[in-house]
Design a protein around this nucleic acid. Structure first.
Lengths: 253, 253
DNA sequence: ATGTCTTTGTGAACGCGTGCACAAAGATGG
DNA sequence: CCATCTTTGTGCACGCGTTCACAAAGACAT
């Protein structure tokens, strides 16, 4: 989860764990880089280092896909790129709509990472009539009124929501009603969807808050260490005067 | 994790599980909404529904913070907002720098969610000299040359990287060298950082690929169901003729 | 006070994910 | 053909996170 995210019940598709699926794109990216450098084979150790994971974990992940490696040699880069791409469903083209063309929506439309890997921005949709027809990233923005038609005409099954929080659920409902079954949500709201619809959430604010938590912890430990008091003592003190000192003894600035 | 996200070893700070920390911002948002509607108390059941989680999970999460509820009544909204805010370190101000003011960086600078909760955009930094001095979201962009000075002058400990992939590691190194200990990375690269530095990753491409995987699975199951073949049969067949029913004959030499 | 009713806080069981450590498999060289 | 060396694939154990289910705690009415 970064990225924080609203996880689906994890239906364990063909026996491939959700955690593994989440890492496949990582491996794919590293493999693609190797492929561009014309590297023929790679060991689990090397590839794991490139992807920033443990080599045992990588081997186990690949074992869910099948036995694609050669003992004593490693993995064939090209073959593995193909297998992972196919597994992730990237051998086909996925038309995507982006709803909500504000700052973020426009940035997403311009993002190169979409087109690179099987994803194609089929349409941009916004509720503001003034936006209609205006091209963003070379694609004319269309009005929300036509949302259902656009979805159906383009056979879209993946939708990206970049609207303000207040509009997100309504947009979500319309997307789902029109046939969308996967949603990437950038709006800071919990979306309610029927069974069978996948939602993934990207929330900048939440990510920052998680970082702030660790940052505060680091500052606290550092302060405690500076004062010559071991972390255990801090823990003990806070336990004594309540779950957490209402008047925090040590509070950075 | 972002969700998608590069998880830290989960140091289990003061005994608060990483998974719980990741949900606290979710609770906080729901509680803030209740607070604005002047709702005095809320039960775990109600709050859990608002946050989109299981009520037992919510209660266990809160139990790590302390016993802040009243049996038979529920939780005091205002009190809980304060406690969670303090726990997350949001009672203080966190200056943040954004490096890489392209489409995404500009969108982030304009994002309102930052300022709302203790985060303040202290500076925008870009490597393009042409950008220098140009205001984005009311803040003048500064050149990368001054990165270290900016970090130190503003006491920044949280950095956001929105540069192209190629520049990310270098920017990261400089940020860390200047004293940044938490990084939110939007560039599609694995960042290598020394111990003690937290990195969270937000990767749009990866999120989409995960959705595509589930989407493909759904399409496959549907097709199998339409053909009157139970899922078990599909699984069996694929086990016989290779990892997946595609034309498995294709084998890169 | 006492009883009833609601809701919290948590003990315990379970399942998933991770990492270790090693046997099996294959390449390579003599 | 045999020995050796490298690297995969995985059995196993461990720890974290989730969920259930219930006792304890407190509010509230009588």
């Amino acid at each position: 989860m970064a990225t924080g995210r609203t996880h689906r019940p994890a239906t364990r598709s063909r026996g491939i764990p959700e955690a593994t699926v989440a890492r496949l794109p990582l491996y794919l990216r590293a493999l693609t880089a190797l492929s561009e450098r014309s590297v023929p084979t790679v060991s689990s150790e090397e590839l794991a280092a490139a992807a920033g994971v443990n080599s045992a974990k990588l081997r186990k992940d690949f074992s869910y896909l099948g036995s694609y490696g050669t003992r004593g040699v490693g993995y064939d880069v090209e073959y593995l790129v193909y297998q992972i791409s196919r597994e992730l469903g990237l051998t086909q083209d996925w038309p995507v709509v982006i709803v909500g063309i504000g700052n973020l929506g426009a940035a997403l439309a311009n993002y190169g990472g979409f087109a690179s890997r099987g994803f194609r921005v089929a349409a941009l949709i916004d509720a503001d009539p003034a936006m209609a027809g205006k091209p963003v990233a070379g694609i004319p923005v269309q009005h929300t009124d036509d949302l259902e038609r656009i979805i159906r005409d383009n056979g879209v099954s993946i939708g990206v929501i970049a609207t303000p929080a207040g509009a997100a659920q309504q947009v979500c409902d319309r997307l789902v009603g029109a046939g969308v079954t996967s949603i990437l949500n950038f709006a800071p709201t919990v979306l309610t969807v029927p069974d069978g619809v996948d939602v993934r959430k990207v929330d900048l604010s939440i990510e920052l808050q998680i970082l702030a938590f660790h940052e505060q912890r680091k500052a606290g430990e550092e302060a405690a260490a500076d004062a010559g008091a071991p972390a255990a003592a801090v823990r003990k003190e806070s336990a004594e005067q309540g779950p957490d000192g209402d008047v925090p003894a040590v509070m950075p600035a």
